[in-house]
Nucleic acid binder design. Sequence first.
DNA 1: GAGTTAATACTAAAAATTTCGTAACTCAAA
DNA 2: TTTGAGTTACGAAATTTTTAGTATTAACTC
Lengths: 131, 131
Amino acid sequence: MRQKKKSDLLTEVELEFMTQLWALEEGTVRDVLDQLPEDRNLAYTSAATILRILEQKNFVSSRKDGKRHIFRPLLAKDAYQTRSLKDLSMKLFDDAPASLVARLVDDVDLSEEALGQIRALVDRRLKNDTG
Amino acid sequence: MRQKKKSDLLTEVELEFMTQLWALEEGTVRDVLDQLPEDRNLAYTSAATILRILEQKNFVSSRKDGKRHIFRPLLAKDAYQTRSLKDLSMKLFDDAPASLVARLVDDVDLSEEALGQIRALVDRRLKNDTG
DNA sequence: GAGTTAATACTAAAAATTTCGTAACTCAAA
DNA sequence: TTTGAGTTACGAAATTTTTAGTATTAACTC
């Protein structure tokens, strides 16, 4: 009976909506829709459908407030960031996160400040581990 | 006339195939198919279709060798790694790569060795920039 | 309550992605 | 040359994702 694995990653549109909810902490269909860019032009009912799907998949919960629903993320942004990084690392970096950072450091534009921050993070982590 | 943007990211299956081609340097439909995991069970013609699509999208080129085609990546793995990281950073890390690394260093299981490698990379980059 | 407004529930169409079948073709060997 | 094995070309079915329409419901006002 094993078949369902479905990768637990968000689709493009699901991520778009989760991003808004993460920013809002919580919100109604209307709230999320208003948050989207001008040129997005998505029907109200489409937005409602997407949130319903997110709820079915247990990425958000909802409670009733008068006649409307207020949605709130169940999946935290932090957790999803981690999940995405693991996925990317696995699929594109031979499961070696260090090579992911290597690519980032080599090719993506990073300010010196950003590099300094990164080094600080790594140092702190190294110290903690060794005790 | 601007409308085509199409994100230039690979779909799931396209990435699966590019990964094999990157490993092989180049190969026929059969080569790629044989490279896939046992339980993948994909029809030969499906694989051929996917490679044809990749060629249409200019991700691979092909040349003829006798009766068969040999496919070769046009998009390099390095380049696509960078592209993916930029996309992830933009969509999920407020376009701040440093926070991406922060998440990685904090949450993904990293060996001490990996951490050391990362610090070395950052250090080298910092020296090059300032030096 | 009747009427208005705005929401949800449900269904399904539209679009994109993934998969495969059939027919036509190519090469090699008999 | 014909046959056979393996390939490509093309079209389309199947599936997943995205979008939207219609009907129903809930709250508010009069």
